[in-house]
Simulated assay, not measured.
Amino acid sequence: MIKEIKIQLRDDKREIPQDISKVKFGKTFSDHMFLMDYNSKDGWHDARIVPHGPIPIDPGAMVFHYAQEIFEGMKAYRRPDGGVQFFRPYENIKRMARSGERVSMPAMDEDMFMEALRKLVEVDKDWVPSAAGSSLYIRPFMFATDVGLGVHASDSYLFCILTCPVASYYPEGINPIKIMIEDEDVRAVRGGTGFAKCGGNYAASIRASKRASEKGFSQVLWLDGVERKYIEEVGAMNIMFKIDGKIITPALNGSVLPGITRMSSMELLRSWGYEVEERLISVDELMEAAKNGKLEEAWGTGTAAVVSPVGRLTYKGEDFTVQDGGIGPVTQKLYDGLTGIQSGKVEDTFHWMEKLEK
């Protein structure tokens, strides 16, 4: 447990948005942030909640030069009874520890992490919106702070948590997206950092995403970095397909992010009786299924959108429409099921939700 969390409250509290639908994702931050330092001598120390604002940092800090940085994305929700709850927070905490291990960064004790999270959201709980589909997005992150130009692990780090209120990803109902399968750039390779949530993975995806956006596509669907033939994930989501009655999602092979929403989707689908396969799926198999009508539905899963239906796939200039460009019944059921549990409107038989109030 944390010995002490010092709290410095803002003197000039910001105005909480009354119409959450007008708030752009990740642009409006809550009043406060959590900070905690680490070094090999003192371990984790100086836990504090301070007004949200700039962090002083030396330009020689190793994070700028060698990219020792990791982060997470999670959410807190307002329940119908007015309370607040988190969606599977310990899974995010465990994943952040795995990401840190891959890039030689220290893990934080799970209960210590959760204590910091609870305290920050408790301080800013008025920022948790109550509108349908809205939530408080939570961004824990950590970066190297040692000053020096030399390629090795830093000895000191700063752990931070930011929060921001966000509206429903689909204020007018979920809309199918258009995806381009990328056949030039690769995002990650086995043995690399693909399974970790670190900034370098996202930097590597930006060029292809920009090209796709210029052609009118919402996202890029990545192929594996070795053979360039197996489906991996979408730029900001994991991917699932319903092919000839079965749900298929790419196996976690070390270059695919182990999504919390992906895991939860599979558990929910299996509880409903669907056959779910985690395996290699080639782009040729996917295109063949699209051509012969066996590709019944496709959707992405992730923290931001929860479930995002795919209405169109493009590969090497060839277009395929999925579910007539609409939303399939399994996609809709999955979205309703997950968001219902998260919001507290559907019974949480899986015990996924963690209440803010102990």
Rank of each mutant, 00 (worst) to 15 (best):
71 F>C: 08
325 G>W: 05
319 D>W: 02
161 I>W: 10
324 D>P: 14
306 V>K: 00
221 L>S: 10
177 I>Q: 07
50 V>T: 11
291 K>N: 12
107 A>W: 02
182 E>S: 05
149 L>G: 07
322 V>D: 09
258 P>L: 11
164 C>G: 07
300 G>A: 12
293 G>Y: 02
131 A>G: 05
199 G>C: 06
166 V>G: 00
218 S>G: 13
13 K>A: 12
264 S>T: 12
68 Q>T: 08
202 Y>D: 10
65 H>L: 04
141 F>Y: 14
134 S>G: 05
14 R>P: 09
145 T>S: 03
163 T>W: 01
5 I>E: 11
271 S>I: 07
57 I>S: 09
114 M>I: 15
203 A>Q: 03
342 Q>L: 03
99 S>V: 09
79 R>F: 01
135 S>K: 11
154 S>L: 02
48 R>K: 15
9 L>E: 15
36 M>Y: 07
221 L>Q: 10
247 I>C: 04
235 G>D: 14
228 R>C: 05
263 M>P: 05
14 R>Y: 08
46 D>R: 13
119 K>R: 15
297 E>Y: 01
303 T>I: 07
329 P>W: 00
277 E>R: 11
344 G>M: 01
59 P>N: 03
115 E>M: 13
247 I>R: 02
350 F>H: 08
246 K>E: 15
141 F>H: 11
48 R>P: 08
348 D>R: 05
10 R>T: 13
228 R>H: 14
55 I>L: 01
73 G>Y: 03
49 I>N: 03
48 R>C: 08
203 A>C: 05
254 G>S: 08
209 S>T: 15
8 Q>N: 15
9 L>Y: 10
290 A>K: 09
193 T>H: 06
351 H>Q: 12
30 S>C: 13
36 M>A: 12
15 E>I: 04
200 G>I: 07
1 M>K: 12
321 T>D: 11
87 F>E: 02
344 G>T: 04
84 V>R: 00
300 G>M: 11
311 G>M: 06
18 Q>G: 15
74 M>R: 01
65 H>R: 03
133 G>K: 01
226 V>Y: 11
22 K>M: 04
68 Q>C: 02
205 S>L: 07
